[in-house]
Amino acid sequence: MKAKVGDRLVLEGTHVGDPRRYGVVIGLKHGDGSPPYVVRWLDTGHEALVFPGPDSRVEAHTTT
């Protein structure tokens, strides 16, 4: 998994009824884009260092 600042991190709920979470990558700890990432969660605005698991994916940021 590789990300760039501005990409979206999507975490699927791990249990039945858990919501999908969306965050924006606001910082990288490694120059090659590998985890962990500093993420701002869109639902709470909380910023956290995230080590994404197998239930997550990165969606590339696109500009229009």
Rank of each mutant, 00 (worst) to 15 (best):
E12N: 07
E47D: 04
M1P: 03
G17C: 11
G13W: 12
V25F: 11
V50E: 07
E59S: 08
W41S: 03
H46W: 07
R21I: 03
V39R: 00
K2M: 08
L42A: 10
H61V: 05
L28P: 05
D32L: 02
D7E: 14
V50S: 03
L9E: 00
P19W: 09
H46K: 14
R40L: 10
R40F: 06
P36R: 03
L11Q: 00
L11N: 03
M1D: 02
V50Y: 09
R20I: 07
V10F: 05
Y22Q: 11
R57Y: 01
V58N: 10
E12Q: 03
E59Y: 09
G31Y: 10
G53N: 02
L11G: 01
A48M: 12
E59N: 14
R20L: 12
A48Q: 11
L49V: 08
P35Y: 02
A60Y: 11
K29W: 06
G33R: 01
D55L: 03
V58S: 13
Y37I: 01
V5H: 10
V39D: 00
R20W: 08
M1N: 02
S56I: 07
R57V: 03
V39Y: 01
G23N: 00
H30K: 14
E59Q: 15
G6C: 03
D43H: 10
G6T: 12
A60K: 14
T44L: 12
E47F: 07
T62P: 05
G6K: 04
H30C: 10
P54Q: 09
Y37L: 04
P36D: 04
D7Q: 11
P19M: 07
G13D: 14
P52A: 00
V5W: 15
E47T: 06
V16N: 12
K29H: 12
V39F: 00
L49K: 10
L49D: 06
R57P: 00
G45S: 08
W41N: 06
V25L: 04
S34M: 05
P35W: 04
P52M: 00
V50R: 03
D55R: 05
H15K: 11
H61R: 09
V10D: 08
F51Q: 09
R8G: 10
L42N: 09
R57G: 00
P54V: 09
T14N: 15
V38Q: 06
